[in-house]
């Protein structure tokens, strides 16, 4: 089911790369069209699963990744349309394709546990996934910022100089993505805590919910990193390149939480 969007994302990736290298407007439009088609197909897949199990498919790592990828694509499409800047697609799409490969190759059955019903659980998961999608965007924008920064600083104006938007624009986009991500992350964590307090305690996973659980612990670390970037970094002069690096580090932690910890380590979130 997840392989049709994957194929479209792959085609879009090729088109975005071509557009980035050759800068032909037609190829750029084709890339966007393919990505929109992929997003539609993906929305259909996720929608079908939602109808099937009665909630958004997020209760195992594969389907959570699939939903996350969809949110990331939507967030990217939003920035592309508001900034009319396609250069970032060449950097986002590799991540999209890599992540989407997991649910496409390794689908898992969606669990229909009672414990997972109710609005709080839905808010918890969807706001966290949206936060992670924003952080992914911020990470990619941060990487491009560093690439451009290095070219200008080294006085070698080449490939990226000709293709990327200005440092100022990249910095603003990065900041905006971090703000949105941080707000969603905060909501997700708070709602998660409230939900855990109310959840039926006979479930062993609910019993395991504490700050010592790796998934919860790393999520808190994430929150700390992004809070620092958002509120403190610029005050102590960590603008521009350092903020961009922070965005990359933050998302590395998010990915760590998302993949290995979800699959192997956590006791509280292994749905």
């Amino acid at each position: 089911m997840n392989s049709i969007p994957l194929a479209l994302y792959l085609a879009a990736l090729v088109a975005y790369m071509l557009h980035f290298a050759r800068r032909q407007p037609d190829v750029g439009r084709a890339a966007t069209t393919l990505l929109v088609a992929g997003a539609l197909a993906h929305t259909f897949v996720v929608g079908m699963q939602t109808m099937d199990v009665g909630h958004v498919p997020v209760t195992n790592a594969s389907s959570a990744i699939s939903t996350f990828v969809l949110l990331l694509v939507l967030a990217y499409l939003y920035t592309e349309m508001t900034t009319e800047e396609r250069a970032m697609g060449a950097f986002i799409l590799p991540l999209v394709v890599a992540l989407q490969t997991i649910p496409a190759l390794h689908p898992m059955a969606e669990e229909k546990a009672d414990v997972l019903h109710g609005p709080l659980f839905g808010i918890h998961v969807s706001s966290l996934l949206f936060a992670y999608a924003s952080f992914a965007l911020a990470c990619v924008i941060g990487i491009t910022y560093v690439l451009l920064f290095k070219e200008i600083k080294a006085k070698h104006l080449g490939f990226f100089y000709a293709r990327l938007p200005s440092l100022q624009v990249l910095d603003t986009m990065n900041q905006r993505a971090i703000v949105i991500g941080w707000v969603c992350l905060t909501i997700g964590l708070v709602v998660g805590a409230i939900w855990a307090g109310q959840a039926p305690s006979y479930d062993p996973r609910v019993q395991a919910m504490s700050l010592q659980d790796p998934k919860i612990f790393v999520a808190i670390v994430c929150w700390a990193v992004y809070s620092f970037e958002l509120f403190a970094a610029r005050r102590i002069g960590w603008g521009g390149r350092r903020a961009a690096y922070l965005s990359a580090v933050g998302f590395a932690i998010v990915l760590l939480n998302f993949l290995p910890i979800s699959y192997f380590l956590t006791k509280s979130h292994n749905f």
Binding site: L148, I152, L157, Y161, A162, P165, S166, L167, Q168, V169
Partner: peptide, 18 residues
């Protein structure tokens, strides 16, 4: 690409500050 020093300075400024 800019082909005069003045334009090179302006285009660099734009790449930094938008």
């Amino acid at each position: 690409g800019a082909v005069s020093v003045g334009f090179a300075a302006v285009s660099l400024s734009k790449k930094i500050f938008g």
